[in-house]
Every structure is written in C-alpha cells, then in structure tokens.
C-alpha cells in the first residue's frame, strides 16, 4: 500500500496505523497522529485501518512562540 507519511511517499505492508508506526520506528507517548487531516486518537490507532493513498501526519512537541 502506498502512503504519504509526513509528506514523504512510503510503500508499506502495514494495514493499521499502529502497525505503520511500529514499521517506521515511531514510538512514544509524545506523538500525535492524523490521517487525511483528521486526528486519530492514540487509543484508536490499533484498529484504524489504512487505505491506499492515505496522508498520515505524525507530530511531536516542538519549540513554539
């Protein structure tokens, strides 16, 4: 399945958002995720089914003004 993850194209075997995070070596309580511009809560990542062409954003805390 082809996905866009943080603006970069990826070809992955993962079918859920949780599997994708593991496959790409993302881990930690400080991450927030969105699929196609909508928040996906941490508790829902395991059952969230990804579809070909989905756009995933994986964000973490950063300095801000």
């Amino acid at each position: 399945m082809k996905l866009m993850v943080n603006g970069e194209a990826h070809e992955v075997a993962a079918t859920t958002l949780a599997e994708l995070l593991t496959a790409l070596d993302y881990e930690g309580d400080w991450l927030a995720t969105a699929v196609n511009s909508d928040l996906v809560h941490k508790a829902n990542r395991a059952e969230f089914q990804l579809s070909d062409g989905d756009r995933i954003e994986i964000l973490s805390p950063m300095q801000g003004g």
Binding site: N6, L24, D25, Y26, S60, P61, Q63, G64, G65
Partner: peptide, 10 residues
Amino acid sequence: TVSLRREMAG
C-alpha cells in the same frame, strides 16, 4: 507556549 511539528522516523 509550545508547538507541534513533524517527527522524523525513529
């Protein structure tokens, strides 16, 4: 104030 930005894999 803090922000959110894209995290690199790993």
